[in-house]
C-alpha cells in the first residue's frame, strides 16, 4: 500500500533532479529575494541595536529561516492540479487504485526534499559569503516545537492550496484565483516581513486567519520570542486549522468531482 506512494516519491525525486536547470532557476530566484530582504533589514537596522523588538541577529535570522521555510512549506501541487483538471487528464488518475491526495502528497514530498536540501545549502553559502550570524535556539524543546509546527504548517499549506485549486472543477481556469491566493497568503503569512511591522489592529485581524500560523509564528517559536506555553498554544491552533482544511479540501474535492462527472468532463 505504502509502496506505490514510495515509488511515486522516488520517481518524482528523479524527475526533479533531471530537470536541473529548472531547479537551479527556482533556487537562484529564492536567493535573490533573501539577499535583497537581508540587506533591506540590515540597512534599516543601521546602527540601531534592535527594531520592533527584534535584535539585529534575530531580524536577519528571520530572513534566513524564512528562506528554509518557504522551500519546505510553500511547495504545493496546486498548479499541477489546475492543469490536470482543465486539460481533463485528471480522469486518468481517478480510474487508478491510488488516492489522488496521497499521490500528489508523495510528489510534493519529493519536491520538498530537493528544495529543502538546496535551501540549507544556500543559507550556508550566504552565511559563509557575507558573514551573517544566525540565531540558534538555546533549548532542545524549541527545536522540537519548531519542527512540529513546520511539519503542520507544511500540511496546512498543501490542503489549503488543494482546496483553492479544486475550484478549477467549476471554472476550468482557476489559475487566476490560485495566483491571488498564493500572493495574499505569502504576505499575510509573514514571508516578506515580520508581521509586527503592521498596525496592531491589522495584526489582530490576521491572527484570526490561518496565515500567520504558517510562517510568522513558527519563526517566532524558532527565535524564542514566545514562552513555551504560548508556543504550545500556537501548535494547538495550527492543529485546529489543519483539521478544518483537511475536511474542507476533501469536501470541495468531492463536490468538484461530482460536478465534473455530471458535466461529462
Amino acid at each position: 500500500m505504502i509502496r506505490k506512494y514510495w515509488t511515486a516519491y522516488a520517481i518524482s525525486l528523479q524527475e526533479t533532479l533531471q530537470r536541473r536547470s529548472s531547479l537551479l532557476m527556482d533556487r537562484v530566484g529564492g536567493v535573490a529575494i533573501i539577499v535583497s530582504l537581508y540587506y533591506f533589514w540590515k540597512a534599516l537596522l543601521g546602527t540601531k541595536p534592535s527594531f520592533l523588538g527584534y535584535s539585529g541577529e534575530q531580524m536577519l535570522s528571520y530572513v534566513l529561516v524564512m528562506n528554509i521555510l518557504r522551500s519546505f512549506v510553500f511547495t504545493g501541487r496546486g498548479w499541477q492540479l489546475v492543469g490536470e483538471i482543465s486539460s481533463g487528464r485528471i480522469s486518468s488518475y481517478l480510474v487508478r487504485p491510488i488516492s489522488y491526495h496521497g499521490y500528489t502528497l508523495a510528489l510534493d514530498l519529493a519536491q520538498k526534499t530537493v528544495h529543502l536540501a538546496a535551501a540549507f545549502l544556500e543559507v550556508g553559502v550566504l552565511i559563509a559569503a557575507i558573514g551573517a550570524r544566525v540565531y540558534l535556539p538555546h533549548s532542545l524543546s524549541t527545536w522540537l516545537l519548531f519542527s512540529v509546527s513546520v511539519a503542520v504548517s507544511s500540511l496546512l499549506f498543501f490542503f489549503m492550496e488543494f482546496m483553492v485549486s479544486s475550484l478549477a472543477f467549476w471554472t476550468s481556469e482557476s489559475g487566476g484565483p490560485l495566483f491571488c491566493f498564493e500572493l495574499g497568503l505569502q504576505f499575510a503569512a509573514g514571508t516578506f516581513f515580520p508581521l509586527d511591522v503592521l498596525p496592531h489592529s491589522l495584526q489582530k485581524a490576521l491572527a484570526m486567519t490561518p496565515f500567520p500560523y504558517m510562517v510568522f509564528f513558527p519563526i517566532n517559536i524558532y527565535l524564542e520570542r514566545m514562552a513555551p506555553a504560548e508556543a504550545v498554544k500556537i501548535l494547538g491552533i495550527q492543529a485546529v486549522w489543519l483539521a478544518f482544511f483537511v475536511w474542507a479540501a476533501t469536501a470541495v474535492w468531492k463536490l468538484g468531482l461530482s460536478n465534473y462527472s455530471a458535466e461529462g468532463g
Binding site: A10, L13, Q14, L17, Q18, R20
Partner: peptide
C-alpha cells in the same frame, strides 16, 4: 545520455 535510476539522475545533474 543518462544511466537508469536515481543515482544516474544525480550523476547527470
Amino acid at each position: 545520455e543518462k544511466d537508469p535510476g536515481l543515482w544516474g539522475s544525480v550523476k547527470s545533474l
